[in-house]
Structure formats: C-alpha cells, structure tokens
Simulated assay, not measured.
Amino acid sequence: MLKNKNLKQSDLIIQFGNVIDKYEEDGNKYYICDSSTTNKKIKELLLSIDESSLEELDLIYYSAETTNTNIPEIYEQPNSITFRLSYSPEAKTFIQYKTSYNNSPTSSGKMISQNDFKKGTMQVVLPYGFTSDCINQEVNIENQTYKVVGIDAIDETITIPFINSPDSLDNITEISFCTKNVMSTKTYQNIRAACNNIFGNFAFIPEIDTVNDDLPFYNSLMLLSILLTILSSITLTLLFRYVLITRNKMISVFRIYGCTINKARRIFVAEIMITSIMSFLITSAIYFKIVVKQLKSSFEYIDIIYNLKNYIIIGLIYVSVIYFILNLMIIIQLHKLPLSQKQGG
C-alpha cells in the first residue's frame, strides 16, 4: 500500500523573468518575478497544450493591460483585461469560465454570451464605474473595434472574448492553471513542456504536488473493481431467476390472458432495473459522503482515481451486464408453454 504523502492541492502559477521575492501563505509557496509577456505568447502556450490536459483544468486565469485604447482610465491606471477561461471539448475551443459567466452581474446591458465568446464576437463588457450611456457604443482596443454590450457591476476590469483578442495586449505577469483536485503528473508535465517550448528559461514554473493517475496499484484496483462489478451483476440476475420460478403461476395466467412475451419481459426487466439503479444511487451517495473520507487516510489518491466519472463508468457496466443477462434469462424462461409453467409451479 502506498504511504500517504499529504498531497496539497495548489494552483500552478507560472510567472515570467527572474524570481525577485517569495513568501508562504497557508502552507503554500508563492513567487514574484520581474518581467511579463504578451497575449500573443499566452495564446501560443494555450494552443500548444494537449487536449486531455486542458480538459482536466477547471480554470485558466490571467490579466493583461492595454494603453492603446479610447476607453478612459477611470481608476488612474492602465485598463486591465481579465481572461477567465475553461476548455470546451465539444466546441474544441476556450469558453468563459462557467462560474464567472453565471455569477457576473451587470449594472447595465448584459454579459457576453457563451456562444459569442466561443465565436470571438467583437463585444466588450466595460468595468464597474461606467454608465449605461456607453451601451451600444463602439470602443477601440489595440486597433480593434468592439461594441459595448454591458457594464460590470463588480469587476474593475474589461471583459472581451479570448478568441480574436489582440495579440499586442501586454504586461501579463502570470498565468494560473487551476484544477478541482490535485493536478495529475501528466498534465503538469504537459504544461511544463509546452511552456518551456514557448518561453524557454524566461518562464518560471514552480514545483507543485501532483498525482500519478497511472499508478499500477490503482490500475489493478480499478480492474478488480470492474471484475467484481460484473460478478455481482451476474449473481444478482441469477438470484432473480429464483424469483421468476416462484412466479410461474402468475406468468402462466398473464400468458393465457394474452400477455405477450415482450410485454412480460419488459415488466420483469423494469422491476429489476429499477431496484438495481436505486441501489446503485444509494451506495454512490454513501460512498461519496462517508466512505471516501474514511479511505483517504490510507489511500491517498482514492478520491481522484475513484472520482465521479469513473464511478459512473463502473455503474454503467453494472447496469449493462444486468440488462443483457436478465433479458436473455427472462426470454428463455418465458418461451416455455403456459401449461408447462403451470405444472412446474
């Protein structure tokens, strides 16, 4: 059994230039570097990260600045443009981070829709402090024209779509890659390789705790779980065969009064499937609410390897095996003549 390493979940924050300071907060190490990069380089970085790694990431966050704009600097500093992104495997592109999109209120107008964000529509939401008079006006950012669709009620930064955002946006001092759990070793290494390829030694990439989701121990444990799932589903269907035998008289009556084999099959399949699915949902709730917390002290990766996605896959295997074997067994049983069933009961 692997020993618990007390892994900590932490965001991967990549900065640029040389480290000039560092500090600790809540047990996490943070660094301050002395340089920055452009939006063009950040785009190159994000587009060079493989899709599986992007899907693992919950949030990608960075801020840029622009002075080449006709938007007034109401906060006495260069206008800041913030990007909060997540990757959509369906759209094969970056979309606005769901929490940011759902929870960002506007004092006037509206937020940029996910559809417009994906397409890179030339729309902009101005920061808190502007008035509704700006709605439907056109503004210039880095020689690109945007239509104002909303005024943010909270944020003091500009929001524009990532796609088609100006390459010349600059003063990006860091970019954060955030996950819901401890980042996998594979994703960390992929981001590190992509960053080294684009920036070389100019990017400072800190070491963080990662989890190797390809550990043989957990792969073997997952395979064992699947085998036990198949065996338990077969056992359950064989037990239901006894229930069918005890109902021979009832089945005979159904058949004599015109119940077709398909109708009878659907009745019994629905009965056992409802029972199986309900039991799976109940055990799932118990596992995620109680069991996983107890196991984590001995199995450090249990909540990552046996996450909701993998648990659902095991559940689908369980239900599928039950459905297939159950149908086969019921059809064989129901093809007996009603008279022979009656005598057998």
Rank of each mutant, 00 (worst) to 15 (best):
residue 11 D to M: 08
residue 12 L to N: 07
residue 14 I to H: 03
residue 19 V to P: 04
residue 24 E to G: 10
residue 26 D to C: 04
residue 29 K to L: 15
residue 30 Y to P: 02
residue 35 S to A: 15
residue 41 K to S: 14
residue 41 K to Q: 15
residue 55 E to H: 00
residue 74 I to V: 11
residue 76 E to I: 02
residue 77 Q to S: 12
residue 83 F to A: 03
residue 84 R to L: 10
residue 86 S to N: 11
residue 87 Y to S: 06
residue 88 S to H: 02
residue 90 E to F: 04
residue 94 F to T: 04
residue 97 Y to R: 03
residue 100 S to N: 09
residue 103 N to F: 05
residue 107 S to D: 09
residue 108 S to I: 00
residue 109 G to T: 07
residue 111 M to G: 10
residue 112 I to Y: 02
residue 112 I to D: 06
residue 116 D to F: 02
residue 117 F to L: 04
residue 118 K to E: 13
residue 127 P to R: 04
residue 132 S to N: 13
residue 144 Q to I: 11
residue 146 Y to Q: 01
residue 149 V to A: 06
residue 151 I to N: 03
residue 153 A to P: 08
residue 154 I to P: 00
residue 156 E to W: 04
residue 161 P to H: 07
residue 165 S to T: 11
residue 170 D to R: 10
residue 171 N to T: 12
residue 172 I to E: 01
residue 175 I to Y: 04
residue 177 F to C: 05
residue 181 N to I: 04
residue 185 T to M: 04
residue 187 T to H: 02
residue 189 Q to N: 15
residue 189 Q to T: 13
residue 193 A to C: 00
residue 194 A to K: 03
residue 196 N to Q: 15
residue 196 N to E: 15
residue 207 E to F: 02
residue 211 V to N: 07
residue 218 Y to C: 08
residue 219 N to L: 12
residue 222 M to H: 01
residue 223 L to C: 06
residue 239 L to F: 13
residue 240 F to N: 13
residue 241 R to A: 12
residue 242 Y to R: 14
residue 244 L to G: 00
residue 245 I to R: 11
residue 247 R to W: 04
residue 249 K to T: 12
residue 258 G to W: 07
residue 259 C to P: 00
residue 259 C to D: 08
residue 270 A to T: 12
residue 278 M to L: 14
residue 280 F to E: 01
residue 286 I to H: 02
residue 286 I to C: 08
residue 288 F to T: 07
residue 290 I to S: 11
residue 290 I to A: 10
residue 292 V to A: 09
residue 297 S to Y: 09
residue 299 F to H: 07
residue 303 D to L: 03
residue 315 G to H: 08
residue 315 G to S: 10
residue 316 L to R: 05
residue 317 I to P: 06
residue 318 Y to D: 13
residue 324 F to N: 07
residue 325 I to A: 03
residue 326 L to Q: 15
residue 330 I to C: 11
residue 330 I to L: 15
residue 332 I to N: 15
residue 332 I to M: 11
residue 339 L to N: 10
residue 342 K to H: 10
